[in-house]
Design a protein around this nucleic acid. Structure first.
Length: 374
DNA sequence: GGGAGACCTAGTAA
DNA sequence: ATTACTAGGTCTC
């Protein structure tokens, strides 16, 4: 049973003047960066010199990699152009006309180290085409989706950044997660403005520890406020240092890494799997959320359709993915997950892919359109 | 040990 | 205009 809303808070009539706070509330926080209301920087500072990565769209397609829930830190700053921060480097990426991806570092002192960081971040040591060939060979459904959704790559993010982002993600939606992550990011050192968005280095543990649970609650974090505070404290108390502790998880087996992560408050099996897959090089980690649960019960373990996702069943789903797709199962899961996103479903239904899946989506889309148009 | 219920919030459907 | 439910779950009995 969901708790009813406390009557002391009237959400329909927010206070006209926010309470004094070191940080603005989430609603007012986003406003100055609204790209629609403040488009000037786009016009003033267009990026003209793109360095080619020399990879095709089938290795990296930005719209299927950045705005699909792996990271909430990157912003769309132009047409098929995204901007974000990798370590201390502010970088923009753009899908060029020939399908290649161009990169541009904003005011970086050492181009060479920035480029190395970029390659690491994009996981370019792994060939998406090669591992997808195996998925396609063992799963016709994957093959069909893959032709429509080329270039959906798994990133290799900074563990702390990834951890904090996915604590925010629990029982939440992308729009609100993004606002929360923006709020925390602003605690880090300012790097610059691109396309109307301010960018900050992700705050270190000390900077994260400067904010109180009360401030986070006032900023709209809800019950996740105490998770953030608790996790930051837990990391700070590690003998070898929190960052070191996180980095060492890359050397462990998946189960060990997940168990270690789950000792942090706000980190359960799903969030731990996200962190493992998106930042700890655990390529076969399977984050099982409601979407993935649906996929699994439809196609992998239909005998479980209708039942609730319990920890035991969580393991069954992960095992099923691992059995079917092998050591890069997490990468396969990522594509299947993306195909479930409403934004992608609408695109899929427009494409030539005529899977059973899409027929049903098309039908739903038509019904919705009919309803909308009266 | 696993199964319910509580937990913040904003948006949408009924 | 209210109410119920959902959304990339986790924690606590």
């Amino acid at each position: 049973m969901k708790r009813s809303r406390p009557i002391t808070q009237s959400l329909s009539t927010p206070p006209s003047t926010p309470p004094p706070s070191p940080h603005q509330s989430l609603t007012t926080f986003e406003r100055p960066r609204n790209i629609l209301k403040n488009p000037k920087p786009l016009l003033i500072n267009p990026i003209t010199n793109w360095n080619p990565l020399n990879i095709g769209k089938s290795e990296l397609y930005l719209p299927l990699t950045f705005p699909t829930g792996q990271t909430f830190r990157w912003k769309q700053t132009g047409t098929v152009q995204y901007t974000g921060v990798i370590g201390p480097h502010l970088v923009s990426l753009k899908q060029l006309e020939n399908g290649d991806v161009g990169y541009h570092f904003h005011s970086t002192r050492c181009e060479a180290s920035a480029r190395e960081a970029l390659f690491d971040f994009l996981n370019l040591g792994i060939s998406l085409c090669e591992i997808w060939e195996e998925f396609k060979a063992s799963d016709p459904r994957f093959a069909e989706l893959a032709t429509c959704l080329e270039g959906a790559r798994v990133l290799r993010q900074d563990p702390l950044e990834c951890l904090i982002q996915f604590i925010c993600s629990s029982n939440n939606n992308i729009q609100r997660i993004t606002k929360m992550v923006d709020f925390l990011s602003s605690l880090g050192n300012y790097l610059g403005n691109v396309g109307g968005y301010d960018f900050h280095k992700f705050p270190n543990l000390e900077q994260l520890a400067m904010v109180s649970e009360t401030e986070l609650r006032e900023a709209g974090f809800g019950y996740r406020a105490k998770y953030i505070i608790g996790t930051v404290k837990a990391l700070q108390s590690k003998p070898c240092g929190g960052l070191q502790w996180l980095a060492a998880l890359r050397k462990l087996d998946l189960v060990e890494a997940v168990d270690a992560l789950a000792t942090l408050p706000g980190v359960g099996p799903k969030v731990a799997a996200c962190i493992a897959l998106f930042s700890l090089e655990q390529h076969h980690a399977i984050p099982v959320d409601t979407h993935v649960w649906k996929i699994a019960t439809r196609h992998l373990i239909p005998e479980l359709a209708g039942s609730r996702l319990t920890p035991r069943l969580y393991k069954r789903v992960a095992d099923a993915f691992l059995t079917k797709y092998g050591k890069y199962a997490g990468w396969a899961q990522t594509l299947l997950f993306i195909a479930e996103l409403p934004s992608q479903k609408s695109l899929l239904s427009l494409s030539f892919c005529n899977t059973e899946e899409n027929k049903s989506v098309k039908s739903k889309g038509r019904k919705k359109a009919a309803k909308r148009d009266g």
